[in-house]
Amino acid sequence: MASHSLIIGCGDTGVRVAARAVAAGDRVTGVVRSQASAAKVRAVGAKALLVDLDTDALELPACDRLFYFAPPQREGETDTRMARVLAALDGPPTYTVYISTSGVYGDCGGAWVDETRPVNAESERAKRRVDAERRILDFSPQARVLRAPGIYGPNRLPVDRVREATPILDDADGGWSNRIHIDDLGAIAWLAGTRSLDHNLYNASDGHPTGLGVYYDTLAEMLGVASPPRISWAEAEQRFSAMRLSFLRESRRLSNQRLLDDTGYEFAFADFRDGLAASLKAEPPLD
């Protein structure tokens, strides 16, 4: 009998995992919130289940692989959404994968960070993720938690900001930027859901941090426009939202050595320049 993959929060990353699961012969159910998302799930040959994880009564099918990609709700320090989902499941499946965030480490002053570093969540948003990690590891001690930084890919680039010459924080006042291409994240999640691994925690990053300005300048060059103007931290505090500032306050360089050692994974886009070029090529042209 075919294995069943259940993907909670089957958005852009989830659809990529769903496509791999279908190709492997799994029965696949993607839990989504909108008809538009459901159409994308069905397009790769999976079944879509429309559910509001906050309010609906949850009747979830048994599964052999659980992929949990839904973000927490927007307030509080606990992930009540995950609590409801896990309570609705009969028990832990053979494989469990959760995509968390590198924000659980907090500000590390630009230091290199591996998975042995204790969490130090500073924002409520990150504290909800710490709570979610603990919940899923309590539910399934063999779960694999992937701590992802900024996810980029087709239709996930700051193209409009760059074209409109929206200012960015000067690297002299900012910290390090880490990222992963969405295709690599989907591939790593599927790998973690199909193989026994030696650890619970993995930094799912391309392993090549840069200053944020380098990323924006490269994108601007590919778009054929001027590099974004720089502003100081004092000016950023006047112009940027509280959420954006909270990201900019934190600086760390993520090591993915554990991931490489345990899996031998070869990144499709270890160099973000290749990832940007491929993403722009995949995006629909401007009207």
Rank of each mutant, 00 (worst) to 15 (best):
V159F: 02
G213F: 13
L245S: 09
D90G: 15
A70Y: 00
S196W: 11
F267R: 00
R65N: 13
S241Q: 03
L157K: 01
A111V: 10
E235T: 12
M1L: 04
E221C: 05
S232T: 15
R239H: 15
M222G: 04
E266L: 14
G9N: 01
N155F: 11
D160M: 12
M82P: 07
A62T: 15
R81Y: 02
R179F: 12
Q257S: 12
R156E: 01
S37P: 00
M82E: 01
R163D: 08
D170L: 04
A88W: 03
A187F: 09
Q257H: 14
D114L: 13
V162M: 06
R195D: 08
D114I: 03
K127F: 10
P92Y: 02
P158Y: 04
T55F: 03
V130W: 05
C63I: 03
D206S: 05
T94V: 07
N256M: 05
I168W: 02
F67Q: 14
S241N: 05
T80Q: 15
V51M: 10
S123G: 11
V22R: 10
G211P: 07
R135C: 06
S100W: 01
G193E: 00
G153S: 04
L260N: 04
R81T: 13
A270I: 11
D138S: 12
G45Y: 07
L201Q: 11
G11H: 07
L212S: 14
F247Y: 14
R135M: 14
A278T: 09
I99N: 04
R253T: 07
E133L: 08
S100Y: 00
A234G: 07
A19H: 08
D64L: 03
S251K: 01
G11P: 05
R128L: 07
P71I: 11
K47N: 03
A148M: 00
R125K: 13
D170E: 01
N155E: 15
I151V: 14
E59K: 12
L6K: 02
A19N: 07
E59Q: 15
G224H: 03
L60G: 02
V15K: 08
V162I: 12
D160H: 08
D262S: 02
D261R: 11
H4F: 01
R253Q: 14
Y105G: 13
T78E: 11
L191D: 03
A192N: 06
A57G: 10
V44Y: 13
W176A: 08
E115T: 06
A111G: 10
G224Y: 00
R81P: 14
R258M: 09
R134G: 12
R161P: 00
S37Q: 13
G25D: 03
W112C: 10
P158W: 01
D271R: 03
L276Q: 01
I151N: 07
P158T: 04
G30V: 11
R65Q: 15
D198A: 15
A270K: 10
G264C: 04
A165F: 05
R195V: 10
V113G: 07
L191Q: 11
G110H: 02
D131E: 12
G76K: 09
R156K: 08
D160Y: 02
P71C: 09
G110N: 03
E283W: 01
F139W: 10
